[in-house]
Design a protein around this nucleic acid. Structure first.
Lengths: 110, 110
DNA sequence: AATCTTTATCGTAATATTGCGATATAAAAA
DNA sequence: TTTTTATATCGCAATATTACGATAAAGATT
């Protein structure tokens, strides 16, 4: 095993799980944090910022990009990454719904 | 390897990553969805609801519980699970901060 | 053109995750 | 008290993730 039975879940469930999973690593949270801090996107600097080797950072960036959470623009020699706001807002929509429902629930755990 | 270098990241980064990771599987998203729908918590019904065997569901519930996203109360024979709103709100605090920053960013990817 | 800089990819080792059958545990029902 | 019901745990196989050294690729610099 090790494979999720994705075909048995809804597209929405799978999509959200992928987004969550993409943020399910401290290095990737740290990358998002850094990108938010520097606003205008930088790239190789992330390698200096994190306690990880360059190939490892590159791999994490790839996962964030695949999930649509960041974008990468070729800028001559370097590649410049930045937050992809759109995806984050899709994320928020999902969570807002959850939070709304939670708020309407009385605090009755069984 | 296979182990994250958690000691090199901040407590907040690690904490958020763990929450995200806990929701990083469609079955666990589906469990949260179901618990939100039925409000007052049910337990063995989750097994009927999901296309997974009982031990697998039990394992997913354990992970959600470890992350603090759900609570489990012994109710005689059965065990009754329900959403733990508190943790979700901690979650929201983190995300609100992100969304706030994103909104303040112009749409300039490099 | 040769070299440097920057990032991606390959290959691999260590570990984690997913899923489930078999089994344990514990309360309820008969 | 035996049986049923409801969950958890063990053990295992298949696969995924994490991390990194080595190397490739591609534009910039000299």
């Amino acid at each position: 095993m090790g494979t999720s039975k994705t075909e048995h879940f809804s597209a929405r469930e799978n999509e959200m799980a992928l987004l969550m999973k993409a943020l399910g690593h401290p290095a990737r949270i740290a990358i998002i944090d850094y990108l938010l801090k520097v606003n205008t996107c930088i790239c190789g600097d992330i390698v200096n910022e994190l306690p990880l080797a360059q190939p490892t950072v590159s791999q994490h960036l790839k996962e964030l990009k695949n999930a649509g959470l960041i974008k990468g623009n070729i800028e001559g020699n370097a590649i410049c990454y930045c937050i992809n706001g759109e995806t984050f807002f899709k994320f928020q929509d999902f969570l807002s719904l959850i939070f709304e429902k939670i708020q309407n629930q009385k605090d009755n755990c069984c």
